[in-house]
Design a protein around this nucleic acid. Structure first.
Lengths: 188, 188
DNA sequence: AAGGGTGATGTCACCTGGTGTCATCAGACT
DNA sequence: AGTCTGATGACACCAGGTGACATCACCCTT
């Protein structure tokens, strides 16, 4: 056994999730999180850029998987078809982490600071998907618009999925959202 | 003349815009803004909730005008038609403040904190428009999805409008974005 | 076995954003 | 003249965040 307990990062994440849940985000101090993890405030900031980021570690993975799905979409797929592929990838990831997602989502919903951070993560995802769409030959503006629309679809589907007492699959809600978007765009 | 210079809020806004532009957001201190306005740090925080908010004063006005446009849309208008009306209202407001918009937008683009704040303002706008759509009889989910889509359209159009050397009207870009969205939704 | 890296952590000092509390004082009102 | 009021200043304080340096178990080399 080494000098230090292993998995400092994971311990900090667990401590933060627990404390944010028990006492609220604003009422929790970084020093308290660190103490619960057996570390110091300084070490917390070596692993996470700020007090918010501890809840968003791993969000790059979702982004990478959705981008990869766009890159791997069949030739000749429409822009919205490629977004559909990205949403399928998101569905898979969400189902994997389903049990962590609910509590985490409630914590984020309780704090404006955390909502801001989540929104900029979504913006980053949109930008990455837009880039991937351009690489697949989608025109500049259309890529931006399609990627933003894809993020909107994901958001709407996520909100329904995370609160669904029947725990139906994410893909179901994503499909509904896409169909509804088509309906809205056509009926106008 | 009173004991204090009038328009403390406006002076703080001007000082902040100038300093954020000259030296950058991160390198500017609230104490410096206050000093430039002839006030103290404590007074700054009486007018603005935080260092970011000073750039977003008045954003409720845009929200109110877009909501009012939805409320005033002709009976029988489609959801996307009501969003079109809201975008027309936004166009009017944007043209009014065009000269302030460019510098302000560049400052926001230079700071992650400020981008986060702008994103949550957009989210607030989406929520308000969704509520207005529901009040006009649009179904719950469709209202959310339509409002988010409207915000996306506004964002895309805004980015093109603010950087347009020919200074063409916002409504032009908004119309293009809407047409492009219809195309994307249909082709897929 | 001795000795010198190495890397994760601790310690400490410091800055800044943000807030609570109380004092101050010009002008309005009585 | 006396009092009230509202905007501001002064001051102390907390928490997030950072830079600089010390510490020390482990590993590697000789």
């Amino acid at each position: 056994m080494g000098r230090w307990q292993p998995d400092a990062r994971a311990r900090l994440q667990e401590a933060a999730l627990a404390l944010y849940g028990e006492r609220g985000y604003d009422e929790t101090t970084v020093a308290e999180i660190a103490e619960r993890a057996g570390l110091t405030k300084r070490t917390f900031f070596r692993y996470f850029a700020d007090k918010r980021e501890v809840l968003f570690w791993g969000s790059e993975l979702l982004e990478q998987q959705m981008v990869a799905a766009i890159e791997a979409a069949p030739a000749g797929a429409s822009p919205l078809g490629m977004i559909g592929a990205a949403l399928d990838a998101a569905a898979q990831r969400f189902e994997e982490v389903r049990d962590f997602t609910g509590p985490r989502h409630r914590i984020i919903a309780s704090s404006r600071e955390l909502q801001e951070r989540e929104l900029i993560k979504a913006a980053s995802l949109s930008a990455a998907m837009a880039q991937a769409l351009r690489a697949r030959g989608v025109a500049d503006n259309a890529a931006t618009l399609t990627a933003l629309t894809g993020t909107t679809l994901m958001h709407v589907a996520f909100e329904q999925w995370v609160d669904d007492p029947q725990r139906r699959p994410f893909a179901l809600f994503a499909g509904d959202a896409l169909a509804q978007l088509r309906d809205i765009a056509a009926t106008g």
